[in-house]
């Protein structure tokens, strides 16, 4: 935040100096300061991603050779996706100046991929259409099956949130308690280390078999998928916490609850949240795999069923969807970190 603020301040100073010479003071200074923060309209429009967007957009309207062999969906779902990408790019462009080049590069790559994909499938029909579906067909899946996909998302999110968060909370609480008591730590840590090496996916089907309902089974699988590593990390973290922090707390005469909740927990928070983004990816993986075993709806189930019926159009749509959902979840974790942790080690 401070960088643009300084930049605009110096721009204002420079502008006011030149404004003193001119007749109209104030107005040009303001305009120049605004220019410094916002991009020119021309800067927003005259760049490679926007050009590529125009190409991709126009390309979508050209005749499609694939139409001779396959059922082709309307193109407007694809166009909406293009507009979304463009809008997101423009949003990123309004952000910090140092990220602008990256935003342009990423958007260019994405549009080039879209153009290429559209060309080789729907326009030129170079590949077997069953295996390499056209983009308009893939994105049309969302229009056609939005209610089914959303209910799957809701189901998956319910399992994810209940399994993931209960696991994180229990693992951290127990981890601090075990880590803080040396005897318990020495006893529990080796056991945890052994158990945590086994991925929850391996014994997932077993849990599905022994639990009464699929819901309880998948929550438990998710719980196990995140619990052991989080628990182990937490024990480790408390055991190896900077001596100076603990000593300082001790000479300040803190009691045990204060030591745990006001010292150890806040001290560990940055690493807990860093681990959370890794655990989140693991639990999404665990979840989608678990859904293959016994669920009837869900994000992972959607893809696996599509694959089972050799409907690769739906499968790809499902994979894109999962990618977007995970990215959004990761974004929330990053926001959480920004909101809670204002310092670093």
């Amino acid at each position: 935040m401070s960088v643009p603020a300084i930049a605009s301040a110096s721009a204002k100073a420079g502008a006011s100096a030149s404004a003193q010479a001119g007749a109209k003071a104030g107005a040009p200074a303001k305009a120049q300061a605004r220019d410094e923060e916002n991009l020119h309209f021309a800067q927003r429009i005259l760049n490679l991603p926007v050009l590529l967007f125009a190409v991709a957009f126009a390309l979508a309207f050209l005749p499609r050779r694939m139409e001779d062999r396959a059922r082709m969906s309307p193109i407007w779902a694809l166009l909406v996706v293009y507009v979304f990408i463009l809008a997101f790019f423009q949003y990123k462009l309004s952000g910090r100046p140092e990220n602008r080049t990256a935003a342009k590069d990423v958007a260019s790559v994405v549009f080039i991929f879209c153009i290429f994909w559209n060309l080789v499938t729907s326009k030129l029909d170079l590949f077997p259409f069953v295996f390499v579906p056209a983009p308009e067909n893939v994105f049309w899946v969302y229009v056609e099956q939005w209610d089914y996909i959303l209910s799957g998302l809701g189901r998956s999110m319910f399992l994810l949130v209940s399994g993931f968060f209960s696991s994180i909370i229990v693992a951290i609480t127990l981890g601090i308690a075990v880590g803080w008591i040396p005897r318990l730590r020495n006893a529990v840590f080796p056991i945890t280390k052994t158990i945590s090496t086994v991925p929850a996916l391996i014994y997932g089907p077993y849990i599905v078999a022994i639990m009464p309902t699929f819901t309880s089974a998948s929550v438990l699988i998710l719980f196990c998928g995140v619990f052991w590593s989080t628990f182990m990390n937490m024990i480790n973290r408390v055991g190896t916490i900077d001596r100076r922090i603990i000593d300082t707390a001790k000479v300040l005469n803190v009691n045990t609850p204060t030591m745990i909740f006001r010292v150890i927990l806040p001290y560990s928070l940055p690493r807990i949240i860093n681990d959370m983004s890794v655990s989140l990816s693991i639990s999404v993986m665990t979840l989608t795999a678990a859904e293959n075993v016994g669920a009837n709806i869900g994000m992972g189930r959607y893809v696996s069923r599509a694959l089972a019926y050799a409907n690769y159009t739906q499968a790809i749509a499902g994979i894109f969807f999962i990618a977007v959902v995970i990215t959004i979840l990761q974004y929330f974790v990053a926001r959480l970190k920004k909101a809670t942790v204002k310092w670093n080690y």
Binding site: D242, I245, V251, P266, Y267, W343
Partner: peptide, 17 residues
């Protein structure tokens, strides 16, 4: 430790958060 004694260490003794 006791409240009648206060201690200042060499370094990194403030809580960084």
């Amino acid at each position: 430790t006791g409240p009648e004694r206060a201690v200042v260490f060499q370094q990194y003794t403030l809580f960084p958060w």
